[in-house]
Design a protein around this nucleic acid. Sequence first.
DNA 1: CCTACCGATCGGTAGG
DNA 2: CCTACCGATCGGTAGG
Lengths: 222, 222
Amino acid sequence: MPPNDPTPSVRDSLLDEATRRFAAQGFGGTSLQVIADGVGIRKASLLYHFPSKDALRDAVLERLLARWNALLPGLLLAASEGGAPRRDRFARVMEALTSFFLEDADRARVLLREILDRPDAFRALLARHVRPWIVIVAEQLEAAKADGAVHEDADPEAYAVQVLHLVVGGIAVMDATSALLDAPPERARARFEVELMRIVRAAIFRPQERNTKKIRQAGVRR
Amino acid sequence: MPPNDPTPSVRDSLLDEATRRFAAQGFGGTSLQVIADGVGIRKASLLYHFPSKDALRDAVLERLLARWNALLPGLLLAASEGGAPRRDRFARVMEALTSFFLEDADRARVLLREILDRPDAFRALLARHVRPWIVIVAEQLEAAKADGAVHEDADPEAYAVQVLHLVVGGIAVMDATSALLDAPPERARARFEVELMRIVRAAIFRPQERNTKKIRQAGVRR
DNA sequence: CCTACCGATCGGTAGG
DNA sequence: CCTACCGATCGGTAGG
């Protein structure tokens, strides 16, 4: 799959359009007709590429998860890089996570809707694609309790799940919730991101001592 | 409206059933037929009580927000109770918030779906029913920075919005995400709740001093 | 709250 | 990838 194919296949266009529509109006609220119209083909032609509406949904999810999985090796490396301080490693994983969904908020919306629409079906998918990450992160945080970097009363596994939801769900509904802030949309969004990272960090790491090095003035600016 | 009417009106039954269906399959994924079937009347009869599907949705949301608003006076009182320590007041507000949605997770699901389905329409609603609360909480937290109870680099307004999402969204998808924890469902749910409260607290309040006047360890902030 | 009915649209098929 | 078409279901109306 060349990432920058100048002439995307009809199949890819259909997946793009379906993703947008499913994200915006949901699976039940989207008809095959509007997806076909959006790509400029007949509905019957859509059903040539995907034998049913369910098959189309599966393909949308499959592609989304494939892109997510493509990110994992790099993430795993960043997370377990022995040299870097724990906080930096953690920040790098968090940044990769957030940027994946900020890059295209429809990814977050499709996943969130899937959880709501088919919680049972999604459980299996979560167990396969997400659980391993929860375990790795939780182990690292649990180990970090020993040298006092992490709050002792934290439940690292539950914490990791909450953070995941905070990022994915937060980005999915960001357009609406950022209106709750007394600031223009652009600024609201920025404050949202900064505060998200602050919460995530403050909730797990204990305050750092200042004497050794005077680095770390908070905030992962990019 | 008597709260414990032994024979609920058809109208109420329709609202109950619609809420359940909208929460589970979404507005677009729910037909008037299944709602009518669920209550044991004809679809045409449903349309006698609610002139259109849109009107039914509006009524579902209206009732939900009315119940939410009924909670507010007590909440406001708990939040501004001058005598109690700030942390206790905060905890009381948080508990009222979470218990409202834990009492019936469909409330959280309907709201979350509404944000996804109609972000623009929901913005106005958020501004009216939720913004005032954000402002009050944010003001209290901002003031609390002065006596060192709250992290100075926190953005109280953005924090309050994130917490709101953490609670509402978290409860909406709890069934699916609790499967990510290595524990039986009941236990997973409990850990979820406990860790949620810990995160919310640790993210905003600075660690409490153990003996009254020992303020050294954090050093001079900023 | 019912029976009876409407046009429009739904997901999907036949056949090329 | 198209034209042509299907039965089923959609939200909604008429009239009682």
